[in-house]
């Protein structure tokens, strides 16, 4: 049986841990609120834009824009959005699981230190890594998406896909692969998503020819790059919301565990203390009887 002093020391250390995890939980909770708001507010915009693009894709000629052209996929381009810091539960490892499932040749770009470290450790083809602050301004993300687009246009990669943790609610974050470029993949993806959600694809019913103002070329030139930037931005906001939520939940669990452990240790300490006192009284009594 450990001595009372040992138990006391352990109690102290567990208390410290609890204090730290509680503080981290509070910090994550306040960041989470902001990140969740940002992610949810931007969602209708991103969805509407995606539906718009999906409706557009079959109506325009593939040759009109490089983003529309189907090409043979030799190397996939994957943008892995992970976190900079750990202590967020299984969030990152779930993402990495998706990465290991990719068997075809692929090149990677990472956002977040954890992802970059993982890709380097597993000796995957990491082209670049970026860090995006918790506030995640559009300008920061634009650098990333423009880099991806550049690689895509140069032909270094033949697709642009994003692996990220989709924010569903505070407790649930889904790791996901989202195709971004080329856009023909997008339409399939959205249709699958709608079927999954039980929504009838009414948007695609109007089969008349589409009019472009001022011209198809001009609209596509403006809309497509804009779409890619915005879309990746939205995915990043979602990933940030997931990160903070996962961290808060992980820290809350840690805090609860510490509290439970503390209760057990206190009980053990009291028992040990009582045993020691009883022992002492016995010894004194025995000594006085013997005298």
């Amino acid at each position: 049986m450990p001595s009372t002093r040992d138990i006391r020391r352990r109690i102290k250390s567990v208390k410290n841990t609890r204090q730290i995890t509680r503080a981290m939980e509070l910090v994550a909770a306040s960041k989470m609120k902001k990140a969740q708001q940002a992610a949810l507010a931007g969602r209708p915009y991103a969805q509407l834009m995606a539906t718009m693009l999906a409706a557009l894709a079959p109506r325009v000629d593939e040759s009109q824009h490089a983003f529309l052209a189907k090409r043979e996929v030799k190397t996939r381009g994957i943008l892995l959005i992970s976190t900079d810091k750990g202590l967020c539960g299984p969030l990152n490892s779930n993402l990495f699981k998706l990465v290991t499932e990719i068997k075809t040749p692929a090149k990677f770009v990472a956002v977040g230190k954890k992802g970059a470290q993982f890709l380097a450790r597993t000796k995957r083809d990491l082209l670049a890594d970026f860090t995006v602050s918790d506030r995640a301004s559009f300008v920061e993300v634009r650098t990333v998406s423009e880099y991806m687009v550049k690689l895509f246009l140069e032909g270094t990669i033949d697709t642009v896909e994003v692996i990220y943790a989709r924010f569903k609610n505070t407790l649930v974050q889904e790791p996901m692969v989202r195709p971004v470029l080329p856009l023909s993949n997008l339409r399939q993806f959205i249709e699958a998503l709608q079927q999954h959600a039980g929504v009838v694809a009414s948007e695609f019913n109007d089969t008349r020819d589409m009019l472009f103002e001022p011209s198809a070329q001009a609209v596509l030139e403006a809309l497509l790059p804009f779409y890619v930037n915005r879309h990746i931005y939205q995915l990043l906001l979602s990933a940030k919301a997931s990160e903070q939520s996962a961290r808060m939940v992980a820290m809350k669990t840690a805090k609860d565990n510490a509290t439970k452990l503390l209760g057990d240790l206190t009980l053990e300490y009291n028992k040990a203390r009582q045993a020691a006192i009883t022992q002492e009284i016995l010894e004194i009594a025995a000594a006085s009887f013997a005298a």
């Binding site: 109506r59 103002e213 403006a222 809309l223």
Partner: peptide
């Protein structure tokens, strides 16, 4: 101006 029955349109 857009009225019901408008032809599909995409514009900036």
């Amino acid at each position: 101006g857009i009225l019901p029955g408008h032809i599909p349109l995409l514009t900036q």
